[in-house]
Every structure is written in C-alpha cells, then in structure tokens.
Design a protein around this nucleic acid. Structure first.
Lengths: 337, 337
DNA sequence: TTGAAAGCGGTACCAG
DNA sequence: CTGGTACCGCTTTCAA
C-alpha cells in the first residue's frame, strides 16, 4: 500500500509547479511542452487527480443522488440502468439509495439528508415523493430535484412522467373496441399521481364511450392486494380488467388462470401498464401499455443537468407524450365476445 | 440559494471554537455544555458536516463502488437492492456503475479507474471480472475488491459465489430422477466461472449416474443464442433441458411452447437457475435452482468491510453452500417418461 | 476539555 | 503561459 501520489509529486518529477499540474488536468491553458512533461510524469507515477479535493473547492461533486423505491418492478432496474449510463456519459456519477418496503417519510428524509451531506449536485426521485420541508432544504441548498415517473402537485419540483391519462384513455378505447361489456379496474396506488392519472383517463374515456365501469379497486402496487381486488371484480362478473401496472398484472393473470381456471384472454381480458419485457412471452402474452422509459430518462437527465449548469433554469413539469402503444396479444380485439 | 453553512458559522453562534464544533460532530471528547450549545446552534443554522471535506482529511470516503453488468436478469436488481440497504445500514454508500452490453476490458478499466478517482473505500464487482493490471492498482491503492457471483482463478481477489457445481449436480440428479433419458444443456457463458461450474457439476453428476448428455451448447447468457442452442438440442431429440440461468430459461420455454408447440413440462422439461421470482407464476411454472442471494450479499458486504476496517484481513474465496433448493413445478419427476 | 494552527489535495486568482 | 499563494471545510495534533 504505497503512499498516495499527489500533484506535488508529479510537479517535482516534471520539474514544474504544482499549479501547472493542476492546469493540465483541469483542461486549463498550458503550453504543449508543459502538458507533455506533466502527463509523462503523471503516468509514470500513476497519478490521478483526487476528485474529492476537486469537488471540495469547486463546490460541484458531479454526483447525482438517485432514490428508487422498489426494484421488483422491472421498469425500475431498466430505468436505473439507463440513468447510470446516461449520467456517466455526461460526466456524472450515481449514488443510489433504496427505500425499504414500508419506508416512512422519516426514512425518506434521512436518505435525502445523506445525499445533501454528500454534496450531490442533483437528485432524482424515482416514484418517490418529497415532503415540503425537505423540498425547501434542497431548494435553499441550491440542489435541483427531479421527480421521475411521479408528479407532485404544487411542490414546485421538476417532474417527468409519461402521459398517464392518455394511456388510461387508450386502454378504455382498446377494451371497448374489443367488444367488452363488463369492464373492471384494479388501479395503481391511488396515493401516487401515476396511479390516479391512469385511473382518471381510463374512467373518463369509458364514460365518454358510454360505458359504465363494473368496479374500481385500489391494487396499491401490491401483489396480494391486487389479487383480492381481482377476486372481487370477478365475483362482480367482469369480462375485462385494466390493471394499473404490469407487476400486478402478472399476479392477476396468474390468479385468474391457475386459481380460478379462467382462460386469459378468452374468459377475461387483461391489460397491464409499464411494458415489462416479460410480458411478451407466450405464457404471459400480456397486453400492456408501454411507457417510453428511454425518453423519460433522457428528459429527466436533461432537465436535471440544465438546472445544475444553468442556475437560472426553471423547474418544469414535463409529460412525455405518446406514442404509448399498446402491445402484446393482438387476440383481444378480435377474438372476444 | 443561501450561502453554505460551515462549522465556523456554528462556532461563532455557539461562542466556541471551530475545533469544538468538529469534535461534537465527530464524536470526540467534549463537555456536555459545549455539545449542547453547539448542537443548538447547528440546528438553528441547519448545519451538517460536509462529508467531502471529512473524507478528504480522513482518507476514508465510506463509499463503495458497485459494478453491475446486466440488470435484465432479475437476480441483479435484487442483489443491488440488498447491497444498497445493507451498506447503508453499515454507514456506507453505494456508487453504482453499469457496464454496457458489449463492454470491453477497456470499458471496465475506465469504470474502475473512475471509482478509484472517487476514493471509494471498496469495490464490489457483480458478475464482472477484473484485469490483472487493475487488480494490482486496486491492491497498491489499498482498495479491497470483492467479486460477487463470479470467481476468478489466481486473481488473489476475494470472491463470493454460491455452490454452483453442487447446484449443477442437483439438477442432474433431479432430471434423472424424473426419468429423463435424453438430456441436453444450454449452458451459461463458458467464459464465466458460474457458467463453467454449473455445467461441470451437471455433467459430472450425469456421468456418475451413468447417463450421457445429448448435447451441450453455450447460451452465453443471451436470449437469441439460447434459442438457437435450444433449437439444435431439440433437433437432437432431447426430452429435458438444463438451462444455465433463468433469464435464458424464460426465452427457451417461450420458444419451445410458442414456436415449436411443445408442452413444457410434458414433451420437454426445463430447469433454470437463479430463482427469478417470476418463475413461480403459473404460466411459467419453471423449475429453478435458487441462489441464496441474501446470504451471498451479506457475506460479500462482511468480507468487504472486514478488509476495509482491518487492513490485515485476507482476501478469501467463499462459496455459500446449500441449500440450493430446487423449486417450481413438482410435476417433472412424476409425470414424465 | 479547549483553541490555535497545520494540513488533506486540489483550484483559481494574482502578478510576472 | 507560468509560479506563488489564498482557500474549500473539516480533522487532528499540540499547548495551554
């Protein structure tokens, strides 16, 4: 474990001042001659600038804090992967925090606090909300926050979602076009904006098309809750179900088929939301709404960086619009009653 | 965007020296009186110590670099989530890097280098190898590295895997007990230790039981490759398939059912590996080998922290042994030829 | 216990 | 363009 190599060591070996070394590595002006000498010395010694020291003085860490609540829904690992790559490409790094299942607001607070302690340049909250007090802290600390796939009214925070209401409407359209008469809905958690928006669009369109909904149940993004909800809706005699996200949709599908012995599609049609890759496999052949993850991530990163680099930039509410395409089993609109 | 609050501000307000403030927040000796005054002043100003400055001087960042290659296999998000939580619980934070699909060694090198630049206290490589040159760099820098779910002969690096050979053997045992006569194998990438070990255990046990394998193909952890491999094995007339991991197994299952119109289990039995949650759903009812993720992560973290905190600690090779239990469809051993 | 002062490893502004 | 120097915010001796 050899001693740390600092810019002074390099300077000494190269026969220049320490300032010169700094300039070469921070891309400031330096004669080609100096730069060469410095670089040679640096590689010989295996020198690399200490990012911590740099951050300390520049006041910019080039680290983004990312909070994710639940990686069990494949949509989030996908997003995480894209975030990490995209940020890396922009010269930023990703400090990841996860929130446990039953995380309270206090837990969320601690996590945010820790990120601030680490002097992150910005924060992305994936499907996680932010209390007013903390939002203010971030604001006064000058740390931009972007909500990913979650809106929060009147928070003044930047937020990126896809057009959830439009998506909900499309599902309604789709199921009605498939000839369904008794349509039910296992919603995403109604405490979340995505859940509410999808439900709202769905119900609005259903009504616009002159259809009544058989029942709406809050699935709370939870397997067990979704199955209970499904059971109640089946008892009410549904012939089609819009499930608030794919994660629950898998559980619902499973329950319908193996517990109730129903054929899907056939006896009942199911539409999920989020476009989990799994959905296109034969066994599940689940119709889903695709969220444009790539564009959502890209937009989020862009919004964040803009706010970081241009302090006058405003936080905005961005809804990534279509095409939120329906995919999966095309059998539904054709083969059903 | 108010000015940053530093320990000097707190000191001024509390009427003590800056050193005193530092002591209070780093848990060093301070009279109760001083501590109280400092804390009061701190909360009033909203002061929190700057972790960067602290790390710079202590030489310990309490940040762990985590590299994951592919989050598409649900095993890794699961592991990632556990890592993040467990490290947080130990007072560490997680800087995540992802490696693109066709990442070269040079890419991996850059990533490691960036982690070193950030002065991480330790590195976890999830299913990623490390070149000799870099391994040495980490070593001389005094940064412990632990390979997670991947072994690397003679690297001298700490490594944690589950008992892959034993798992492979169990699969052989299982399929033979199910009465299968023509058994094939779509292996995990043979460039990885996990892939090789599973294959090795599988073939050894098959031989020990007096069975010949119909064919072995390298699936390379790739959807398309796995499907091609499957096709060749089906042409060779297999009645059972051991697929190197669940990720490929899903694709294989899908291909067998929807493209070839075979029933699984029935015409062919399939066993996967990794225990993806999805596997237990009715549509997929896939028999898999469960890797003990929780214990693997726990052990990895423990090994890493031990090396960080006790500089004399040695890097070890740890194989988390059973029970790697087989689960999923119990139909296979009973209902087949 | 407490305060003063010396760094940690850089960046940035200064006059030359 | 170059070297000298103040400084980022904190930890850690060292006397008092």
């Amino acid at each position: 474990m050899s001693k740390r190599v600092t810019s002074f060591d390099v300077a000494a070996l190269a026969g220049v001042s320490q300032s010169a070394v700094s300039r070469v590595f921070s891309g400031a002006s330096a004669s080609k001659d100096t730069a060469d000498k410095v670089r040679r010395a640096a590689t010989k010694l295996g020198y690399r600038p200490n990012v911590l020291a740099r951050s300390l003085i520049t006041g910019r860490s080039r680290i983004i804090g990312l909070v994710v609540a639940y990686l069990g829904n494949p949509f989030y690992p996908d997003a995480l992967e894209r975030f990490s790559r995209m940020l890396q490409a922009e010269g930023y790094h990703t400090l990841v925090f996860t929130l446990a299942e039953g995380a309270t607001d206090a837990d969320a607070d601690r996590v945010i606090q820790q990120m601030l302690d680490h002097q992150v340049d910005g924060i992305v909250l994936a499907s996680v909300g932010l209390g007013d007090a903390l939002a203010r802290r971030c604001d006064t600390a000058g740390i931009p926050v972007v909500l990913f796939n979650r809106g929060q009214e009147g928070s003044g925070l930047a937020q990126v979602t896809s057009a959830n209401r439009e998506g909900g409407r499309k599902v309604a359209e789709f199921l009605v076009a498939g000839g369904h008469e008794r349509i039910g809905h296992v919603s995403g958690w109604q405490g979340s904006s995505t859940g509410r928006d999808r439900t709202r669009g769905f119900l609005d369109e259903l009504e616009a098309l002159g259809h009544a909904v058989v029942g709406v149940e809050d699935g709370r993004y939870d397997h067990a809750a979704a199955i209970d909800a499904t059971q109640r809706l089946v008892d009410a005699g549904v012939d089609a179900l819009f499930v608030g996200n794919d994660h629950m949709a898998f559980a619902v599908l499973d329950h319908l088929r193996s517990e109730l012995g129903l054929s899907v599609p056939g006896d009942v049609s199911v539409v999920g939301y989020d476009d989990v890759p799994m959905a296109s496999f034969a066994g599940y052949d689940l119709t889903t709404v695709r969220q444009p993850v790539g564009r959502m991530v890209k937009t989020t990163v862009a919004a964040l960086i803009e706010q970081i680099e241009d302090k006058t930039a405003q936080a905005g509410i961005i809804e990534i619009d279509g095409p939120l395409i329906l995919r999966g089993s095309a059998r539904i609109p054709e083969g059903l009653r």
